[in-house]
Design a protein around this nucleic acid. Structure first.
Length: 260
DNA sequence: AGTACCACCTGACGGC
DNA sequence: TGCCGTCAGGTGGTAC
């Protein structure tokens, strides 16, 4: 699930529920998910502190701790955040639980444990260490145009490359290509200036619409591919096709996206 | 530089 | 009912 829109919604959820509250206790059930910090150190560093603000970059969520450092959350393929009132039952696959003095709690869940919980002094440093490109919603047209057009591989691979633009994954890269009516294997370096501008605008539009739809398929605009990935093209009604592009399964409409 | 494949994990699903 | 291969929206490493 978690690509940029999902992580942005997690960020908003955390910001709306979990800032400026004293942290009483932190427990991690799967220490394997921790990077750059041990369970004990994490619990120690959060104890008595508060979350002050949030920052999202691509699929990473940074949460500033009152000490000045940042808690870093990545959600893998199955991660999520859920704020709980005192009496609420723990969600399944809760891997980290942060308990506030007030009695409410914040649960980080991750069924497949492919996410990661990390720690950094500066999020800018973290971005450099992980070789992340500009955020897909922050980037401006000239840089987007330059970064995409210099790629030699397929458009699908370029959009999903986190070192080019951070935030797009398999589903939303498919969505953008569908809206653009371009084949996933279309070479990235082949687009002209006008197409690159359209690709940029489509990316902004798709991500914005997905956030506005709360990343819920049944709330998305009727022209979206996403709710129909296992079915028929919402534009022409033909059966959608699944192919392999750069190691991932790409869903597209052979009728609408024929231009290689 | 790009791609193909493997690994990390768990769970759901279809075929036999 | 049970077993097995396959697949799922993540990243990172390898070899070619």
């Amino acid at each position: 699930m978690p690509e940029l829109p999902d992580v942005e919604l997690f960020r908003r959820h955390l910001a709306a529920t979990s800032l400026h509250k004293e942290i009483e206790r932190t427990s991690v059930s799967d220490p394997d998910m921790l990077h750059a910090v041990t369970h004990q150190a994490l619990a120690q560093r959060l104890k008595g502190q508060q979350f002050e603000t949030t920052h999202r970059h691509g699929k990473f969520l940074f949460v500033k701790v009152s000490s000045g450092d940042w808690l870093v959350l990545h959600f893998g393929m199955t991660g999520a955040l859920k704020h709980l009132q005192g009496g609420d039952e723990l969600p399944g696959h809760t891997r980290m639980l942060i308990e506030f003095t007030a009695g409410d709690r914040l649960a980080y869940t991750c069924q497949r444990k492919l996410g990661q919980i990390s720690w950094t002094g500066r999020w800018e440093t973290f971005l450099e260490e992980h070789r992340l490109g500009p955020d897909a919603l922050e980037i401006e047209l000239p840089e987007f145009r330059q970064l995409i057009s210099k790629k030699r591989g397929t458009l699908k691979a370029a959009l999903m490359d986190q070192s080019v633009v951070a935030g797009l994954g398999n589903v939303y890269s498919d969505e953008i290509l569908f809206q653009m009516r371009l084949h996933p294997k279309r070479p990235a370096g082949q687009l002209d200036d006008h197409q690159l501008k359209q690709l940029y605008q489509t990316t902004q539009q798709v991500l914005g619409d997905a956030i506005d739809s709360h990343a819920q398929p049944d709330e998305m605009p009727s022209g979206f591919l996403l709710p129909h990935r296992d079915g028929d093209c919402p534009r022409c009604g033909n059966r959608l096709t699944k192919i392999h592009v750069s190691g991932r399964s790409a869903v597209y409409c052979p009728q609408c996206q024929s231009s290689h």
